[in-house]
Nucleic acid binder design. Structure first.
Lengths: 223, 223
DNA sequence: GGAAGTATCTTGACAATGTCAGGATAAGCA
DNA sequence: TGCTTATCCTGACATTGTCAAGATACTTCC
């Protein structure tokens, strides 16, 4: 029909964004994950939509099916990368605390909380097993790694005495208690449940800092 | 047409269930709330559907609109009654502990956790502000009452020293720390996050009991 | 008692969603 | 070059929440 040149559609010579209108996206998988992460923070996990993610990636509504089995597949991938980020944040905060001679467990708790507050929608998604597929290999590995990083920090801080004596159940109880406290605090803060209980003119940051600052352990009064 | 009696439609003399096929349901509002509670436990808050609730109540898909503004309205009502139940469970467990000379805070923590495990879907809904309307009067009042019951128990147990000295922020921090721990533990348990970290052959009940049993406070070792 | 008014429920429609089937296009490989 | 495969699109379907308009039953007022 048109010219005999090799380029069939009138492709513009200059592409403003990395590959604009070509049939093959190039990195649709990554673009969908990024779009989903955006949506997660803009509208939350409840209003996130596969079609809107496709729209933002500049692609038809059925295109994602070639990269993810379904919506659960995409969300599981996003959650997996979220857990990887969380594991990294925990590990690096523990290392920094160790270098500074501070308590590792307290530092990782603050890192955990900060991560949740920085990515509320993603954090909520990461703990919504009915929407993601926890048996997905990468997600399973990433979530395990995140908890392992937390457990390592607890061991390093001496909070979970692993040298002798203490039976495994009691040690695990101490570990999980710390985890649950930080996790619950993050969830309550994200959901806006702490706003209503700030004494007089106290800020939310002050309250959470007062909760997280001291090693949440048992220390004989004084000292 | 038919007989001249007052009953127009051929209404069966015996109604197997309380009012079967009449145009006006009688208690559609309550029936919808019950149907939603059922669905909450069967499929969870993510797959709960307004149309399915209407179906279970034996009513058309648009009928709920005359009793609840929209899906959020129905869910807010369900969440409100959930908080009322939670507040009751907390208060009664605290009273029982007081009578038995046990620690009130520990008892309420176990009651909180037990409530969450007994009604997982409802509990998740109660802490999903993007799906319910926290400004709904009844919901707002009920959630405040639940927290107030928890705070009362903490005060009674002496965990939150309200007599003198301690500044309000520190007292609130202790209170919220206890709440967050129990809340996080409940969420993690419901989401199946604790199953993977049971030492050898320990059961989940044993682990959670080990976490909740001692007053999660600072007690000088011994005694 | 009967008529008017209101609360309650139904039917039908709309846009939006997730998913599937089948066709079009581009890339890779022989 | 021609074939195969990966990638993407169009179109369709059932389902959802919500709205509009009509049908039905209850209430109230004369």
């Amino acid at each position: 029909m048109a010219t005999g040149a090799s380029s069939r559609p009138p492709r513009p010579a200059v592409l403003p964004e990395p590959a604009r209108k070509r049939y093959h996206h190039g990195d649709l998988r990554g673009a969908l994950v990024r779009a989903a992460e955006e949506l997660l923070e803009e509208v939350g996990p409840d209003r996130l939509t596969l079609r809107e993610a496709a729209r933002r990636a500049g692609v038809s509504h059925a295109a994602p099916a070639h990269h993810f089995r379904d919506l659960t597949g995409l969300l599981s991938e996003v959650a997996a990368s979220g857990f990887e980020g969380l594991a990294g944040a925990i590990a690096s905060s523990a290392a920094a605390a160790h270098a500074a001679g501070e308590d590792e467990l307290s530092a990782t708790g603050r890192a955990y909380f900060a991560f949740a507050l920085a990515h509320p929608g993603l954090f909520q998604l990461m703990f919504r097993s009915q929407v993601i597929d926890m048996s997905a290999p990468r997600l399973d590995a990433a979530s395990s790694a995140a908890f392992a990083a937390f457990a390592d920090a607890a061991r390093a801080s001496g909070e979970v005495g692993d040298e002798a004596g203490g039976d495994p159940l009691a040690r695990m109880a101490t570990l999980v208690r710390n985890w649950a406290m930080v996790h619950g605090l993050a969830f309550l803060a994200i959901d806006g449940r702490l706003a209503g209980m700030l004494p007089d003119g106290a800020t939310l940051a002050a309250l959470t800092e007062a909760i997280l600052a001291p090693a949440p352990a048992k220390t004989p009064a004084g000292v």
